[in-house]
Design a protein around this nucleic acid. Structure first.
Lengths: 367, 367
DNA sequence: TTGAAAGCGTTACCAA
DNA sequence: TTGGTAACGCTTTCAA
């Protein structure tokens, strides 16, 4: 019966090219003997919908019988709201950056929002491009991990026009106001350094994965300051070239230069602070030249990734915050989108906690 | 804020020319002094577009001056094509499953396709639900990592109606035809076993992370068979409970039972085959009871994840294929969407390569 | 070579 | 309490 009416509609249309067999709101309304408007109101449970229970039931039944599914493109066109949010993040392929997207998508999953992802290669132009592309798609909001440098033209425009957007780690980077979720990197670096000082280490080597990345720079600065305050010598900088966008390139690429560095500077440091990645490789290098970890050299990572907790020698590392960051970003975005966020921008700073593990803990017992 | 502009626009409804603040195709056409139709043709570079160069230029100029951006929702509604593909994968949060999404999104990035992601919790109902939700959004195609069991109702329907869909690892699971990208797990398990046999190991312990997961079961079967063929004893099964959807739960959760198991069965095995995850923990446990790896017990992972290559003791592990799988899935999907895929379904089986590292290599030298 | 008209499926607004 | 009308921004077909 419903097929018949559909066919009739096609024929009446005449010029219609390919008629999709899709069930429309109109079909439901017709079957329920009401107007499309009414069906729309009822099915969307609009607040001021005063349809009688009987009508309501007929509409629901019709929808169920016909297997009606709303066309979200049409809805988006009409309402201007797409029910999608965009996520832009540098090198989606970088596993260490994985947890933010995860937090965001999982938070979104509990609502009816969908997340569309795209990754930039840490250059400003691709950031702008991706933002525009997602706007074209009509996303209702945007979560952006900004590139380390650049004008952030589109991002700024969005923030200034009040478009719902939240940034990750934009705290010390962006020169305009915007909702933001950042990590407390300074405090994190400070607590790392203090932990080492407490262990009796004073000559720290800073094995920074990507020195250009601002998050590394901030941490490095905090470490430097804390050492200075303790009257310890400034950190020895181990600079190993590594791709910005794909952090986990072939480990061997890093291993050789790092081993050379360690051999050359052996005895000049009694602790290493790196990323979980560089720290893992450092341990390997140290063991290769018979330096005992943590007895001779304590090693520390950062971000508490899977490498820290699950590597063969568990790493001391500030706790992961990525997932939490993603969740909160989603929450902020929703508040903006729904309009109950106020004029003030919110900036959330997530504290880290130092997870002490064997790479800095000489005595195995106790916790 | 967006609400505000929407309201304003409707208030100013009437027959006035001014509508939304958004620049539409109509605006461009007006400024260029042509009809919307022409502008559409030109801007989309339609094949049979015979606009004069002069008109064409005027339209381009107008679009640039006005900062025209097409409304993809409208386009989607009109054409029935959304330029989006959906990705459904179990626990997007599982890092070991991360590489497929990455491969897919990166492949998509080079086109104008957007990827909308959602993750299911390995239960059949959520798989169906997510498929329906993405269809509502009008995705042009779907890449699905099916749940380990269940009727796969929606998936089957899609495949049978010819909707562009590609599955991951559906090879031995689905009882209907469908484009698919799978890993050659049998061969992978075989080569793992042979490698161990060649090293002189004969008593293998199989430390399977998630025995329920079919990919683990297939591998286990291959190992068993190969041992049998070599007249070696059947593998000792180490069953440690672990969540299906979040593979990397707290490592400590696994460590205690595993250590107990290893202590109990010490001397009963000279090799362990696990996942990269379980293998890492196993190494830790073995070292705790002064068993040397690989001298006393060789340990092997699988999937060649970051844990394998970058853990403190590099793991022998079959090479990663996830990214490749994602890329190929995207390619297949595009072929279907564009309609040049033929009636036959394609099934791609990606071979793995055993990456031999120190966890099974007694002598450090050479490669 | 360009223009006019007809919707795609939905919802906002007002009239009944 | 329900129905009618007019868009949302775009593309397609056909006529000029």
């Amino acid at each position: 019966m419903s097929k018949l009416t559909a066919r009739k509609a096609t024929e009446r249309r005449g010029k219609g090219r390919r008629k999709t067999s899709r069930v429309t709101l109109e079909d439901v309304a017709r079957r329920a003997g009401v107007h499309g408007t009414t069906a729309s109101q009822v099915l969307n449970g609009r607040a001021n919908c005063w349809a009688s229970d009987e009508t309501r039931q007929r509409i629901f039944d019709a929808a169920r019988d016909l297997g009606y599914r709303p066309n979200l493109s049409a809805q988006a066109l009409r309402t201007g709201r797409s029910g999608m949010i965009g996520l832009i993040s540098p090198g989606f392929g970088v596993r260490s950056q994985h947890s933010r997207p995860v937090g965001l998508t999982e938070a979104a999953a509990s609502t009816s929002y969908a997340v569309t992802v795209s990754s930039h290669s840490n250059d400003s132009e691709s950031e702008d491009l991706l933002i525009r592309q997602l706007l074209d798609r009509g996303v209702d909001g945007l979560a952006v991990y900004p590139t380390d440098s650049g004008p952030h033209t589109e991002l700024r425009r969005l923030a200034q026009t009040g478009f719902p957007v939240v940034t990750f780690e934009g705290a010390n980077l962006l020169d305009f106001d915007c909702d933001d979720v950042s990590t407390d990197l300074k405090k994190s670096g400070r607590s790392q350094t203090r932990h080492l000082l407490r262990l009796g280490c004073r000559r720290v080597c800073f094995a920074n994965g990507v020195p250009e990345a601002r998050i590394n720079a901030i941490r490095a600065e905090a470490v430097r300051r804390e050492l200075q305050r303790a009257k310890a010598p400034p950190p020895l900088e181990m600079r190993i070239p590594i791709s910005t966008t794909c952090e986990f390139t072939d480990a061997d690429l890093m291993e050789k230069p790092m081993r050379a560095f360690i051999r050359k500077h052996l005895g000049e440091f009694d602790a290493i602070i790196g990323t979980d990645f560089t720290a893992s490789i450092a341990i390997r290098c140290l063991q290769a030249v018979d330096v005992r970890v943590p007895h001779d050299v304590a090693v520390m990572g950062c971000e508490d990734s899977i490498l820290a907790s699950h590597g063969s020698l568990p790493l001391t590392s500030p706790s992961a915050i990525g997932q939490l960051a993603g969740e909160n970003a989603f929450r902020m975005l929703m508040a903006r989108i729904r309009g109950d966020a106020g004029r003030q921008f919110s900036r959330l700073v997530i504290p880290t906690r130092l997870m002490v593990r064997q790479s800095t803990r000489p005595n195995k017992g106790g916790d």
